[in-house]
Design a protein around this nucleic acid. Structure first.
Length: 265
DNA sequence: ACATTAATAT
DNA sequence: TATATTAATG
């Protein structure tokens, strides 16, 4: 269980809401309610339109609020699944349907709330909590609990939200995870071999690979796995040895197993 | 301060 | 599982 931050500043004014609803009356109403709560609303009348906005990334959002009575080409569940797959945004479902089994279905699929119509103003007012929950629980700005003093001396000043400032919440796009294709992996292997396994550190491997957009962390992560796999084969080889070797010889054995085919299976 | 990496999270 | 991120360590 993570410790909770004792103090996190959170501006819920101007949180960016992506509103999706193909009913004009309903979308107008919700839009007005949201705006009067000082949310910044972008309204879409069709889910595919909403997905385009999310994907092109030109506009950042803090939360998605969506009706789910869509046209037949995309139902609410599909939309929800797609948004959850591609983003980390909290998704609030709004619907006239109030059957418990339907609601459970949406919650199970990852909706952070299901609001049966009519949606009351006081509920809209509290939507910011879904953004706050995500940010606070996922936050690493944990304030020292022991002395109860906010540790603002270090660079971890409390970050504010989008709000009036131009700062955007970082929304990790799940699609943006690096995929180590055979091609990319081969470049990696070449770079590592060129350096020699014992000198291969992320920064140098990154430089040698010379792949735009590739980050040191990507390489570091991949290098860990690569070494682990080499280590496994080395350990297996070691089983055939009678005695126990010194720790430093483990490094040498990476070299012994360099022709291993264990990786990429 | 910065880089690496073991450990952990998603 | 593959990849990302955190946190300890140098």
């Amino acid at each position: 269980m993570k410790p909770y931050p004792l103090q996190v500043s959170f501006n819920f004014h101007g949180l960016k809401v992506l509103l999706v609803d193909n009913n004009h009356t309903s979308i107008f109403l919700l839009s007005k309610m949201l705006q009067s709560c000082h949310y910044q609303v972008t309204a879409c009348t069709h889910p595919t339109q909403a997905l385009m906005l999310l994907r092109n990334g030109e506009m950042k959002f803090d939360i998605v609020v969506t009706e789910v009575n869509f046209s037949p080409d995309m139902n609410g569940i599909m939309f929800l699944e797609t948004v959850k797959r591609e983003t980390d945004l909290p998704v609030v479902i709004v619907s006239a349907e109030d059957r418990i089994d339907i609601m459970i279905k949406y919650i199970t699929k990852g909706a952070c709330a299901y609001l049966p119509k009519p949606v009351r103003m006081e509920v809209v007012q509290l939507l910011w909590q879904h953004v706050a929950r995500k940010e606070i629980l996922g936050s690493k700005q944990v304030i020292n609990v022991e002395d109860g003093e906010p540790n603002s001396s270090q660079s971890g000043e409390n970050k504010e939200f989008c709000g009036s400032s131009d700062e955007q919440i970082k929304v990790r796009d799940k699609k943006n995870r690096l995929v180590w294709t055979d091609d990319l992996h081969q470049k990696f292997v070449d770079a590592v071999n060129q350096l020699g396994i014992r000198n291969a550190v992320p920064k140098k491997v990154l430089e040698l690979m010379n792949v735009p957009g590739l980050r040191r962390g990507n390489v570091a992560s991949h290098l860990q796995k690569y070494r682990l796999n080499l280590g496994k084969t080395a350990a297996q080889m070691q089983e055939s040895f009678t005695g126990r070797d010194t720790g430093s010889s483990m490094i040498e054995q990476y070299g012994v197993s360099k022709n291993s085919t264990a990786y990429g299976s």
